[in-house]
């Protein structure tokens, strides 16, 4: 290639690339929003800061977590692991149904307030409070403290394969400012995996949940939601050590 042509091509190519950079600077999404955006459901799912119909949509009543037995196949429902079903209450706390299926029968289970360290998004300072805790082991009611303030070892009474927990998770939500009214972020993590390695899945049928982010996963895997508003779940089960899920929520009107 002749030198003049080579220089011309280089300058033209660079000009096109720089013009592209200007377009991306105007049209591209800030990195923080890209990281929070859903992938397959992007076209139907609002993102933080976007102008959505949240204000005009009638607020939904807090959706009750469905019975764990109704869940789809996976960890904590049909195979060993932990399944979390989550719904948002009007005060911003979460109603959680957590079911653990053990690989082998056990007679005790350690429970601890959820470890949400590394949640990011301004949620690192939250102090989770578990209240109204109920437990059933293989269909038998189990005596557990109503409030979970520290790690406790629960006597399951007999060799047990499946434990169902129901509780309210409080103190893990922060309102997003500035943002739409009621928009916020909350973080959820299991309470039954403090002394147990297991795959964890999270599902929600609550339309108040707008997106799921897994902050302890690698950057490309952090966008971990599958489905659409009203039927979100984690795209893949995640190991209990990384099982911290940030929920982008629109808090139901009281």
């Amino acid at each position: 290639m002749r030198p003049a042509v080579r220089r011309g091509v280089a300058v033209s190519g660079a000009a096109v690339l720089l013009a592209g950079a200007v377009v991306v600077a105007r049209e591209g999404m800030p990195r923080a929003e890209v990281n929070r955006a859903t992938s397959p459901a992007r076209t139907t799912t609002p993102t933080v800061g976007s102008s959505t119909a949240t204000l005009t949509t009638p607020p939904s009543a807090p959706a009750e977590p469905s019975a764990p037995g109704e869940d789809a196949a996976g960890p904590g429902t049909t195979e060993p692991g932990v399944s979390l079903r989550v719904a948002v209450r009007s005060d911003g706390s979460f109603e959680v149904a957590e079911q653990a299926i053990f690989t082998r029968e056990r007679t005790t289970l350690a429970l601890a307030p959820p470890d949400v360290a590394g949640a990011g998004s301004g949620l690192d300072g939250v102090i989770p409070a578990v209240r109204e805790l109920q437990a059933i082991a293989d269909g038998r009611p189990v005596d557990v403290p109503a409030r979970l303030r520290r790690t406790v070892v629960v006597d399951l009474g007999a060799p047990t394969r499946v434990v169902e927990l129901r509780y309210v998770l409080d103190g893990t939500t922060r309102r997003s400012l500035p943002s739409d009214v009621g928009r916020g972020l909350g973080v959820v993590a299991p309470i039954s995996t403090v002394a147990m390695d297991a795959d964890v899945i999270l599902r929600t049928a609550d339309p108040a949940v707008l997106n799921l982010i897994c902050p302890r996963l690698s950057p490309l895997a952090r966008v971990c939601a599958s489905g659409e508003s009203g039927a979100f779940e984690l795209r893949d089960p995640i190991p209990s050590g990384n099982a911290v899920v940030v929920l982008q929520i629109s808090m139901p009107r009281p």
């Binding site: 991306v24 591209g28 999404m29 800030p30 990195r31 990281n35 955006a37 992007r42």
Partner: peptide, 8 residues
């Protein structure tokens, strides 16, 4: 454009 992080 929605997938491209602006800064990246």
């Amino acid at each position: 454009f929605s997938s491209l992080g602006r800064e990246d």
